[in-house]
Computed example of a mutant assay.
Amino acid sequence: MTLIRRLIPKPISQYHPLFYFLSTRTRRALRYWQWKTDGQDYAQEKCSTPLLYRVKKHQSVLIRKLGDSEQHWQHNKVINLKIASPCISGILIYPQQTFSFCQLVGQPTAAKGYVEGMELSFGQARGGIGGGICQIANLIHWLVLHSPLQVKQRAQHSFDPFPDQGRVLPFGSGAAIFYNYIDYQFYNPTPHTFQIRLWFSDKCLEGELRCSVDLGYVYHVFEQQHAFLKIGSDYYRQNEIWRHRKEKYKSGEILDTECMTRNFAKVLYIPQRIDQSFASWAEFTAEQQTPTIKT
């Protein structure tokens, strides 16, 4: 069945700033304890020399028009990205190691030079110190989807705040970050070493995933079952992200296919088109069928 994220009462942390403070500090403390006791070997070593083989390269535009959001947040985001990216660029992920975004980048603070950028939180866009560095996590996740690396922890926003303007990746293919308990982590189950490299061009954040060997296959990531829905008086968006693993050098034969994720999010704007309308949640639920891949 398609995942349905139903509306629930807001958490207690949203009722008073003190509750929010206590909630975040408790969760951070629990994450620190987990890092010390979970027995995982977290990637820490970096190397400026690129590994021999490129697995995937991608670039992400730095300044985009996002609805009516304040553009100074976009420019501040670039400052934050340029502080955070050296914490990750060159990182080596050896066999059986785990990559943790929050461990490597640390907590974004004004003392480190971070400024107020845009954050998506509690169903709205707002300013926050270090806002925008999730763009690095988004890019890394796209690279990881094109590799045998296994995602262990990934969060995504339960709402879609802005209409698509220049979108090149499927909806729902990013990763949300909030230090330190909303982390992005992946694991290297292979006998090979991988490396993430990040750099900046005039208009883009650039990144690549490299490997110590030629894997001999490539991945094609694609979207299925995309739709804008109206349920009652609200709007929602759903899709599925799939991938083929294909032979690299011979005929391009598809070796296997898998569904990576199914997304369902509330839309905070009025879509230009509505693919389906339902009078109620009950009617929508009754219409759900097991999704299948198109051939």
Score class of each variant (00 low, 15 high):
A155H: 06
A155Q: 00
Q156K: 05
S158C: 03
F159W: 08
D160F: 09
P161M: 08
P161Q: 07
F162K: 01
F162D: 04
D164W: 00
D164R: 03
Q165F: 01
R167W: 00
R167Y: 00
R167L: 02
R167C: 01
R167G: 00
V168D: 08
V168C: 07
V168M: 10
V168G: 01
L169N: 12
P170N: 05
P170V: 10
F171H: 08
F171P: 01
G172R: 11
G172L: 05
G172A: 04
S173N: 07
S173T: 12
G174T: 10
G174R: 02
G174P: 09
A175T: 11
A176E: 14
I177N: 07
I177V: 14
F178V: 10
N180S: 15
N180E: 15
Y181S: 14
I182Y: 12
I182K: 13
D183A: 06
Q185V: 05
Q185Y: 05
Q185I: 04
N188I: 05
N188M: 10
P189R: 02
P189Y: 07
P189H: 05
T190R: 05
H192G: 00
H192F: 14
Q195V: 01
I196G: 08
R197A: 06
R197N: 13
L198H: 04
W199E: 06
W199L: 00
D202R: 06
K203H: 04
K203C: 02
K203P: 00
C204R: 04
L205S: 07
L205V: 04
E206V: 11
G207W: 12
G207D: 09
G207Y: 08
G207K: 07
E208S: 09
E208M: 07
L209I: 10
C211Q: 09
C211H: 06
V213R: 07
V213C: 13
V213H: 12
V213W: 05
D214P: 06
G216M: 13
G216W: 14
Y217T: 14
V218K: 15
V218W: 15
Y219P: 11
H220F: 15
H220R: 15
H220Q: 15
V221G: 13
F222R: 06
F222P: 02
F222G: 06
E223A: 12
Q225M: 08
Q225N: 15
Q225C: 13
Q225Y: 11
